[in-house]
Amino acid sequence: MITFNNVKKAYKSGDKEVHALNGIDLTIEEGEIYGVIGFSGAGKSSLIRCVNLLERPTSGKVFVGGEDLTELSPKNLREAKRKIGMVFQHFNLLNSKTVYENVAMPLLISHVKKDRIKKRVEELLEFVGLVDKKDNYPDQLSGGQKQRVGIARALATKPSVLLCDEATSALDPQTTGAILQLLKKINEEYNITILMITHEMSVIRDICDKVAVIERGEIIEHGSVFDLFSNPKTSTARNFVSSVMNDRIPDSIRKLVSQKDEYQGIYRINFVGASAGQPFLSQVAKKFKVDVNVLFGNITELQGVPFGSLVVKLKGEPSEIKRALFFIQQEKVVIKEVNTHAS
């Protein structure tokens, strides 16, 4: 559905050239919710704005629905853009227009007949839950309601692609959850491909099918959300995962276990799916002469599958710990020794 082919983007800054994108190769399949995450200045917004050519790539090609947008004539590009909706971080609503008029704006620009505009706008306001607000102005709405108006407006022309540029970062956590559920509903009921730009890993966890990590204008890691959470390969990805999994050993715990003990080890255990419900740690304590102390941990859900992480201390004779570790590995969980002095 969306393909970036060696896309580069550079900006002029005085006599210097700033490279925002450095050869992006990425494919988002039809019907996916694809997240792109990165720190400020990584190139996220430049990337998403290249999809609808709000920013034209310095070089490379951008394909949407099989069409190379960079090669289209102005007229054909306008037609192609009608199939690409966009939701902005700060809503971008017209304060002088009512909710109804804001949603209707793309249809008015496209010279759609009034009766069809009325039908489409009412349908969308029903969909986003704002029928009773149609005559209100943006200043009379909450942040979440404003974003619902922005989403309805982005859907007005029946796009096949929806771009979300930090669509939830200006919202509180509860409202963020509601907006994400609405986006999920849009994806499922309208079969719209969604590309989300965010710096919040919780957004990626809660809604996305796949994710790419961008850093200094390059994609440094990409794949399924499940794979990224369970086995991040780069330090940047690990930092983002840690922000929602909270899997770093707290300093207070690190101090407690930092005293050298000849017969103890600290291990991180990652478990997924059915293994999350198995009592393998209690079985270890029963089967082997090993004391098991759970230091801390948590569990979350990724695409409907339980995923968790525990940090445990195993104490006993080296031979018994070795046998216990082998047993745990047979339970199809990932276990690694932790360096308690690492940050």
Rank of each mutant, 00 (worst) to 15 (best):
L26A: 06
I186G: 04
V87G: 04
L54G: 01
N52L: 11
S40G: 07
V311L: 14
E32N: 10
F296T: 11
V333Q: 03
I179C: 05
Y267S: 13
V211M: 08
A324I: 00
M201V: 10
L163Y: 04
I214T: 02
Q89Y: 02
E188D: 09
T98V: 06
V241H: 06
A274V: 03
A342Y: 03
E317G: 04
L125C: 09
K12R: 15
L26Y: 03
V290G: 05
S73D: 15
P74C: 10
N298W: 00
G38Y: 08
E17W: 14
D291R: 11
F271P: 04
L26R: 13
E67S: 05
S242T: 15
N92K: 01
R323C: 00
L180Y: 02
A154K: 12
D115L: 10
S343N: 01
M245V: 11
I194H: 01
K83Y: 03
T3L: 12
G304E: 12
A10W: 15
D209K: 08
L171Y: 02
T58S: 12
E200N: 10
R82G: 10
E218T: 00
V149H: 05
N6Q: 12
R323N: 14
T3D: 15
D165Y: 02
T168I: 01
F280H: 04
G14D: 12
V203Y: 12
N102T: 08
I249A: 04
G14S: 06
Y137L: 12
Q264E: 12
K97S: 13
G85C: 09
S59E: 13
K332R: 15
L93T: 06
R49G: 10
F226R: 15
T157C: 13
N52D: 03
E79F: 09
P250Q: 08
E331P: 08
V311I: 11
G273R: 05
Q181P: 07
I109C: 11
S59C: 11
V103P: 11
K83V: 03
N52T: 01
S46D: 07
K210W: 12
F326E: 09
I33E: 00
E17Y: 15
N339H: 08
L183Q: 14
Q264K: 15
M1A: 11
E320K: 13
A237S: 15
I84C: 12
H222F: 06
I194Q: 02
I48T: 01
F229Y: 09
K61S: 04
K119I: 14
S46H: 02
I179G: 06
V211R: 10
T236F: 04
D206T: 02
P250M: 09
L72Q: 14
D132H: 07
E17L: 14
N270C: 07
N339Y: 02
I204E: 00
D135A: 06
R254F: 00
D227F: 14
G144Y: 01
V244L: 06
K286V: 05
G177K: 03
R323Q: 14
I328W: 00
S73Q: 13
E55K: 02
K9T: 07
